[in-house]
């Protein structure tokens, strides 16, 4: 059973196609990770899901309810923790939770019990009666989580929930999400951190340029890709000619499936090999041609490789390239209602 079904979503901002035919199914009860670099369309997808934005075309439903036709029913099912959550600096955290409870029409008695429960669970006792303006990033995020959970939604949606947080807050939030999942809540998070998705998600999709380029269980995605990964350098900063020469040498080594010259990372070589038994043969081949080895590392296929395979660049490179180009202030201004 799928709690969320997205079909062929298209959304443009002016000339920018943020979503370009995105389709996705999120199984009920899963902790689903939406992995993608900056600008790949994660926030746009989640905003459509939470009825803040309507798609140009395509369909989106939550628990069988169409987000465009029946937005109010959809809102009741979702707890949404946005990327940059606005809080009212003048209110205390407690007052904000009360407001939230009233906006979701909780009975006042039930509302107060639920607030008390969440204050304890998220360890907010010592500061919840202070004004929100004084909170640290970690406190704010915990308050956001509490407001998202207040009405006991069957779906919790979090947009990059641990960006900019210290490790302690991050682990606390991870633990909470895992607990929620084990209690049956479906959790959908977006992230550009591989580690986050690896650590949490039991189902995932990789987004690039407004489309899903891979979908499934993280292990399956890696398995399907197959092979081990080797990164190799003959000099700290090599040049294209030299790397091409080495590449031509190595493609013929037995057990090497693919060699890519990575021009972003100082022309290092990225290899896909059968397994670690190939490593000695690589060294041998270089020795024979009198080529010194500067560095070599070996690893199992990772989610980054899944991304690399599909897009020809690493997640990190895509992230860096995109974040330089975006004018977030302007986007916020344009997204204002």
């Amino acid at each position: 059973m799928y709690l969320i079904e997205l079909q062929d979503l298209v959304k443009s901002y002016g000339t920018v196609k943020a979503l370009n035919g995105l389709s996705l199914k999120v199984p009920t009860g899963s902790l689903f990770g939406l992995l993608g670099p900056n600008g790949s369309g994660k926030t746009t997808t989640l905003r459509i899901l939470c009825t803040l934005l309507s798609p140009d075309s395509g369909k989106a439903s939550v628990a069988g309810l169409d987000v465009v036709k029946d937005p109010r029913s959809v809102r009741r099912e979702i707890g949404y923790v946005a990327q940059e959550v606005a809080i009212d600096k003048i209110l205390t955290g407690f007052e904000l939770l009360q407001l939230q409870g009233d906006l979701y029409h909780l009975e006042p008695k039930d509302r107060n019990l639920r607030i008390a429960e969440l204050i304890e669970k998220l360890e907010m006792q010592s500061w919840i009666n202070r004004r929100c303006g004084t909170y640290s990033g970690g406190m704010r995020r915990r308050l956001d989580l509490a407001s998202g959970l207040l009405h006991r939604p069957q779906l919790l949606v979090l947009d990059e929930p641990t960006v900019g947080l210290d490790i302690e807050s991050r682990t606390a939030i991870w633990q909470l999400l895992l607990d929620l999942k084990s209690q049956g809540t479906t959790v959908l998070i977006s992230s550009h951190y591989l580690e986050e998705v690896e650590a949490l998600a039991d189902q995932m999709a990789i987004l690039d340029k407004g489309r899903v380029i891979a979908e499934g269980k993280p292990e399956d995605l890696k398995e399907r890709l197959g092979g081990d990964r080797v990164t190799l350098k003959v000099r700290e900063f090599s040049n294209e000619n030299e790397s091409e020469k080495v590449r031509n040498l190595l493609v013929n080594v037995r057990g090497v499936r693919q060699v890519v010259v990575n021009c972003v990372q100082g022309f290092s070589l990225n290899l896909v090999v059968d397994d670690e038994s190939v490593l000695p043969r690589l060294r041998e081949a270089l020795d024979r041609s009198k080529i010194q080895l500067f560095a070599l590392s070996h690893s199992r296929a990772s989610l980054d490789d899944v991304y690399l395979q599909a897009t020809g660049r690493t997640l990190m490179d895509a992230e860096l390239a995109a974040s330089n180009q975006r004018d977030v202030k302007l986007e916020n201004k344009q997204a204002m209602r």
């Binding site: 606005a86 809080i87 029409h105």
Partner: peptide, 11 residues
């Protein structure tokens, strides 16, 4: 963006 908080609620 506080308005967005109100707009995702089932008012």
């Amino acid at each position: 963006g506080f308005l967005n908080r109100l707009l995702v609620a089932p008012l």
